[in-house]
């Protein structure tokens, strides 16, 4: 097969995958909003069931994130992803990303603090980096005790974004610098390492002045809890 046919085929497959994802997202959207509505009705009468429904919303959102990440990784792999680096107001951006998590976290009694200097801007692909933060928050939701703290600042030409919790900390495997190369590691409950791989790929897509973005995990969070560090040049 010629190179051109290859390209046309791969574009056709991408568009097929994209429209399937679109279709699934419509279903997920319905699911999430119906669950939302039902939760609102049930909550005054039966708080416990309402909490369980909220849990379902969380799972649905996780599914959604995974779908998007798979499609994005496919596109990146086939050089069909156009990186959209633009100036981003970091506080605004994190507001948007954290918003859908707030209710769920509040129900679990987890407090989220976002500490970002007003007017801080940086350059990155909003959609991609949002995917990373969603992953980390979904994860922190499971493991933190009752706190999550998000910080961002600029240091020597890098944007540092940290998400710290006061849970038991990340497992030993994840603290290694090449953790993203392993699969099936301890995201528990059948996690495949997709999120980790995605985060690594997205970070390294961001380059500037011969420097590449990267991610790191530490157990230097609140009271020795987990801390995720994203650095973007």
């Amino acid at each position: 097969m010629s190179k051109k046919q290859d390209k046309t085929r791969s574009l056709a497959l991408t568009s097929l995958l994209a429209s399937s994802v679109h279709d699934m997202k419509n279903s997920l959207n319905m699911l999430i909003n119906t669950l939302d509505d039902v939760t609102e009705i049930i909550r005054p009468k039966d708080a416990e069931s309402a909490d369980r429904l909220t849990q379902m919303v969380y799972e649905t959102k996780r599914m959604n994130n995974h779908l998007v990440q798979m499609l994005t990784l496919y596109k990146i792999g086939n050089e069909q992803y156009l990186l959209n680096v633009a100036e981003v107001d970091v506080a605004d951006f994190l507001d948007d990303v954290v918003l859908p998590h707030r209710e769920l976290l509040a129900q679990r009694g987890v407090a989220v603090d976002v500490n970002i200097e007003d007017g801080l801007t940086w350059y990155f692909d909003k959609n991609l980096v949002a995917g990373i933060v969603h992953n980390i928050l979904n994860n922190a939701y499971k493991y933190t005790r009752d706190r999550i703290e998000i910080k961002a600042w600029i240091e020597d030409g890098w944007l540092r974004l940290t998400i710290a919790d006061n849970g038991p900390g990340y497992p030993e495997d994840m603290l290694k610098p090449d953790a993203f190369l392993q699969t099936g590691i301890s995201f528990d409950t059948g996690s495949t390492g997709l999120g980790l791989y995605f985060a690594h790929q997205v970070a390294s897509l961001h380059s500037h002045n011969q420097r590449e973005g990267h991610i790191r995990f530490e157990n230097s969070g609140i009271d020795g809890g987990g801390k995720f560090i994203l650095s973007l040049p």
């Binding site: 997202k25 959207n29 999430i32 909003n33 939302d36 959604n64 605004d92 948007d96 918003l99």
Partner: peptide
């Protein structure tokens, strides 16, 4: 606005 979104996300985005 990216799907899926909830009421809260909808209003927050539209306000911005």
């Amino acid at each position: 606005l990216t799907k899926p979104f909830t009421k809260t996300e909808f209003s927050s985005r539209l306000e911005k």
